[in-house]
Design a protein around this nucleic acid. Structure first.
Lengths: 224, 224
DNA sequence: GTCATAAGGATTTTCGAAAATCATTGACTC
DNA sequence: GAGTCAATGATTTTCGAAAATCCTTATGAC
């Protein structure tokens, strides 16, 4: 029997995407135990590909493994939020700086286009339908990826991609904030403007500050 | 008290260590195809734990996966050497800087002790017995780990650990160089001295230069 | 009551084989 | 001869169950 698997070429790949999405969206919450029986039912497959998915997720910091005691969703903490933010400021800051220095007209086009897409739909919030919220999340990630896409370093890009995803789990907590004190759209526009004006140092600084603000806004979730 | 034995509490962990060691030592060369049948024979286990090991190794950049076409040892290239070196200079440089700023007396002790161990045996070379060579490699890694161990950022440390291991594959090519033009031991001593003198900026610069020299010495292997 | 220990159930980890996919070969057409 | 296509063999990927391990509960001694 031929199975249709849009997007993935192996069941393990599908399981990886699916479980990561569940964690991303909060359907699997921080610290939650992930039992193979449940995941097999969710993904409609045997234990082997599920296991491979969890191995990958663990290597990337989304889940944790206790030998012979199973997998859990990685917990969120203020300390890790600050830690990841600092690492992002270092790595993405440098990647953005290099992008501005090295980027060609095609890169400028990608920045412009991805920013345009980002402004066409309202930012993710509680009162926005879930489908459109996911749409914004995707375009947001694409915009930030575009900014650093001309840095010329696959290694740095891979590090940044992972850090972005891990930080994304934290950022999604803020959809319940109304962000009144912050003009996120304006910050994104500033980032684009600085990129296109080719001022590498100021661009990198602005990106670092952008991430710093995001992290600061999230600290209130960890008061207890 | 239960202890985690290095070497692994699961077969998958054992396979991971074993295969990584084979790649590290060159027994599995760059680009070489890794067949499950061979690895199962090598590790004396079934396909499942071997597969898990390869999944982890691939996530860390030591192997590559072509869906349905199997795993191979990641190739080495001059471009990647330069790329990894730049990423190390950024990440380890910052981690070292933070360590010098934040490190306490215990950290100083770790730096001092690990450097002492490093100087007690001759540096890895072709004319040195393999066992002692491995010993030096281990102490060398421990020294560099100690330098950055007080940076306070688990995320950054994890990134550095992975970059170090990947760069290590390149550095091991140089055991056939006699390093006449370079005083590696002296550079290590300088790093220690700068760490203990608590001059963060100069220490970070020295570490970056140290990695730059290492990479430069390896470029000759990629002339073709 | 507390501690230690053992039995039972739940869960992870591993196995051996089946299914799916890829690569090669060779026949056949044009 | 070049190209298409089916058959074959090699290899990866997945399955379903067995084995190993952990956790909970029950039992008994002090």
């Amino acid at each position: 029997m031929e199975q249709k698997r849009p997007g993935g070429r192996t069941l393990a790949g599908d399981a990886y995407e699916r479980i990561r999405q569940q964690i991303r969206s909060g359907a699997f919450g921080p610290g939650e135990r992930l039992r193979f029986a449940d995941l097999q039912a969710l993904c409609s497959m045997s234990v082997t590909p599920v296991r491979e998915a969890l191995t990958r997720l663990t290597a990337e910091g989304f889940t944790t493994l206790d030998d012979h005691r199973g997998y859990s969703v990685a917990r969120l903490s203020l300390a890790e939020l600050r830690d990841i933010t600092a690492a992002r400021q270092l790595c993405e800051g440098e990647a953005f700086r290099l992008s501005v220095l090295n980027g060609d007209a095609e890169w400028e086009g990608r920045v412009l286009a991805s920013h345009h897409l980002l402004t066409r739909i309202p930012q993710a919030r509680d009162d926005i339908p879930s489908a459109m919220r996911e749409d914004w999340e995707e375009r947001h990630a694409a915009f930030h990826a575009a900014l650093i896409s001309a840095c010329g370093s696959p290694t740095l890009l891979e590090i940044c991609r992972n850090l972005f995803r891990r930080a994304d789990r934290y950022r999604r907590m803020s959809v319940s904030l109304d962000g009144a004190a912050r003009d996120v759209a304006g910050e994104h526009r500033t980032l684009m403007d600085l990129a296109l004006s080719r001022d590498a140092e100021r661009a990198a600084s602005a990106l670092k500050e952008h991430y710093g603000r995001t992290a600061a806004a999230l600290e209130i979730f960890f008061e207890s």
